[in-house]
Write a protein that binds this DNA or RNA. Structure first.
Lengths: 177, 177
DNA sequence: AAACAAGTTGAACAGTTGTTCCACTAGTCT
DNA sequence: AGACTAGTGGAACAACTGTTCAACTTGTTT
């Protein structure tokens, strides 16, 4: 809950605008395309604004990707637990929401190099665990890995897979037959 | 088979040195750390050498990652098909060979943005298909996704998982129980 | 021996980068 | 009213980037 302080509130808005702009840049050009200047250009603010709120590029990246994972969590919770719904979710993630999903996966991999991002990355996994439903630890791990791999393989396919094709695979992973 | 031509042979050697140096840079600093100059420094050659053999940075990256996937294929074929061996492979990939595996996964994800890398990325998948052994398409896809996800999740864990912990999960994925 | 292509290299180009500095405005507190 | 602080933004810094150029060496072919 932000304080009802005039100054802070104004600052927070611009903070969010910068984060949103950064995410758009990542979606469009990948993490590689993020610079203080490219983000400032995208947000329509002077370059010094981005450095004012996020002193270093690392800080900016970490804040963006953490926030983005947090934001994605909200929409994630609305997915129901049937294999068909999960298949539809993966198909959408690799199709219409491709850019966003790609950005999210770059965070995922960046977490391998930057421990600060691990929390956000694990957030992803624990959300998938909710989707997978309760089951014993070994089976849970297998399902999570399966859904994760399905998603990433969908991203590098020449054409995004269709939900109907995904459904039997998801079903096999989630129901074990 | 390279021609026994003196000039070409000498050139090819330097080509390989540059590729190897690039891979080392990717392992150490990620794709983000690759520049004509950083690679040249790593290889101990002048900057113009890297541009002579690979006119653009993209060309260099694509060549390196394609070659690296091809090279990894060799060691991959030696993995036997038992769940225990696959578990050991994953544990090693996330532990001792972490840098290399990370580099390989950055290729994997880069393929999502650059179609030129898709062939190399799919090579990965088809190699895993060999490890998985023959089975019907749906089951194969589930196993491949599972192994893929297990590997990537091992990379973002705080500590690399041990083969013993991995083994039951791999077993469940491969044998379905 | 001359001609040629392949390979090698230092220097330089213009453009971009992260980051810092300083002057300025606009709200808030005393 | 004056002092203070958060926020704003223009200009500049040195460092680095991808890429090109022209000069040079080397090995091979005629």
């Amino acid at each position: 809950m932000p304080p009802p302080d005039g100054r802070r509130v104004r600052g927070d808005r611009r903070r969010r605008e910068i984060l949103a702009a950064t995410l758009r840049v990542v979606e469009r050009d990948g993490v590689a395309g993020v610079s203080h200047r490219s983000v400032a250009r995208e947000a329509g603010v002077p370059t010094t604004s981005t450095t004012y709120y996020y002193a270093t590029l690392d800080e900016l990246l970490i804040a963006t990707l953490t926030w983005s994972a947090e934001e994605m969590a909200a929409s994630f919770r609305q997915v129901s637990l049937t294999p068909a719904a999960v298949a539809r979710f993966i198909a959408d993630a690799a199709g219409p929401h491709r850019g966003r999903t790609l950005a999210e996966y770059e965070l995922y991999l960046l977490a391998a190099r930057r421990p600060e991002l691990r929390a956000a990355a694990r957030r992803w996994i624990s959300l998938m665990a909710e989707v997978a439903g309760p089951r014993d630890p070994v089976a849970l791990r297998a399902v999570l890995a399966g859904l994760d791999g399905l998603l990433i393989q969908a991203l590098i396919a020449d054409f995004p897979p269709m939900a109907e094709d995904l459904e039997p695979v998801v079903s096999l992973l989630m129901l074990g037959g």
